[in-house]
C-alpha cells in the first residue's frame, strides 16, 4: 500500500502547533517512515501543491491570503484536520471579536490617520470550509498528535475528548482550585486532554484547550465566579481569551455588555 500523503500548513498564529509536531523529536522520525510529507511549512522548503490524504492546518483565518490558502488546501485534501485553538476558534487573537472592530485594533497598533489595510476578523477554519477533525489545545499535545497519527494509520477515527478538565483533575486527585481555594478556574467548561496540567501546578485553568464543543455552560461558570467575588469584566475577559468565538460565551458576553453599557475595560 502506498504511504499516505501528508501536508502540514500554517495560517495566522504563533507556529506553536507545527512546533509541537517537531517536538515529537525521535518519534517523529519513526512516524515519518510510514507517511510521505509533501509540505511542512515550518520545517521544509518542499511545498508541492498536490493532492494529499491528510492536511493538518494550524492558525486562524485572519487575512484574504489565509482564506485563499485554506480553500486551496481543502480542495486538494481528502481529510482536513484543524490543529490547535487558532484553527478552531481563533484563539487569543479572536478575544475581542465583535467587541472591537478591526479598524479600532488597527489604529491602536498602527496609529490613527494611517491608511487602513484590509484584514479579516479572526476565525477558525470551519467558518469557511468543511473540517473533518478538530484537535484542541494551545498548543496541541504531543500525546494527541501521536495518537491521531497512529489511529489514522490504522484506519481508525481518533478519539476527541468531550468532557471537562475537572474530570482529569479528579482522576489525579488534585485539590479543587475553584471550590476549595476560590481561584477563578475555568476547568468546568474547558475540554480535557491536558491531564489537568495547570491545576496540577496549582494554577487555575485559563482555558487554553477551548470550551467543550456544544456543551459550554458559561452562564453557570459566570455565576460561580461572581459568587467567589470576581467582577464581571474580569470573568468576561477570562472567558474570551480562548472562547470569544464560541456561541455560549458570545451570548453571555453580549448580555453583560448590554448590562454594563458596553465600555470595554471599565
Amino acid at each position: 500500500m502506498a504511504k499516505p500523503k501528508i501536508g502540514i500548513y500554517g495560517l495566522t498564529g504563533c507556529g506553536g502547533d507545527q512546533l509541537m509536531i517537531l517536538n515529537l523529536e525521535n518519534e517523529l522520525l519513526d512516524l515519518l517512515r510510514n507517511v510521505e510529507i509533501v509540505a511542512f511549512q515550518e520545517a521544509s522548503s518542499v511545498q508541492q501543491d498536490e493532492e494529499v490524504d491528510i492536511a493538518f492546518v494550524e492558525g486562524s483565518v485572519s487575512t484574504e491570503l489565509d482564506l485563499e490558502r485554506l480553500k486551496d488546501v481543502r480542495k486538494r485534501s481528502r481529510m482536513l484536520i484543524a490543529i490547535g485553538d487558532c484553527a478552531i476558534g481563533g484563539c487569543v487573537q479572536a478575544m475581542r471579536n465583535q467587541e472591537m472592530t478591526m479598524k479600532e485594533k488597527m489604529e491602536e497598533v498602527y496609529g490613527k490617520g494611517e491608511e487602513y489595510f484590509k484584514v479579516l476578523e479572526p476565525y477558525g477554519l470551519s467558518k469557511y470550509v468543511n473540517v473533518d477533525l478538530e484537535l484542541q489545545g494551545c498548543p496541541i499535545e504531543t500525546t494527541e498528535i501521536r495518537q491521531v497519527f497512529l489511529s489514522l494509520l490504522h484506519g481508525d477515527t481518533p478519539e476527541i475528548k468531550d468532557y471537562p478538565v475537572c474530570v482529569e483533575c479528579k482522576l489525579n486527585e488534585y485539590q479543587c482550585l475553584l471550590v476549595d481555594k476560590g481561584m477563578p478556574c475555568l476547568g468546568p467548561i474547558i475540554a480535557a486532554g491536558c491531564n489537568a496540567r495547570c491545576p496540577g501546578l496549582g494554577i487555575d485553568c485559563v482555558g487554553c484547550r477551548g470550551p467543550i464543543m456544544n456543551e459550554t455552560n458559561a452562564a453557570e461558570e459566570l455565576h460561580t465566579l461572581l459568587e467567589k467575588g470576581y467582577d464581571e469584566r474580569y470573568i468576561e475577559n477570562r472567558l474570551r481569551f480562548f472562547g470569544a468565538n464560541f456561541e455560549g460565551i458570545l451570548k453571555l458576553s453580549k448580555m453583560l455588555r448590554e448590562k454594563t453599557g458596553g465600555a470595554r475595560g471599565k
Binding site: 495560517l11 495566522t12 492558525g59 486562524s60 485572519s62 487575512t63 491570503l65 489565509d66 487569543v92 487573537q93 478575544m95 475581542r96 472591537m100 479600532e104 485594533k105 488597527m106 491602536e108 497598533v109 484584514v119 479579516l120 479572526p122 485559563v206 469584566r233 474580569y234 475577559n237 477570562r238 481569551f241 470595554r264 475595560g265
Partner: peptide
C-alpha cells in the same frame, strides 16, 4: 496576519497578561 496583541490586551488584569 497581524494579531494585534497590543490592542486586545487592553483591559486585561495583570495576573493573566503573561498567559496571553
Amino acid at each position: 496576519g497581524p494579531r494585534f496583541f497590543e490592542a486586545i490586551i487592553k483591559g486585561v488584569k495583570y495576573d493573566k497578561v503573561p498567559d496571553v
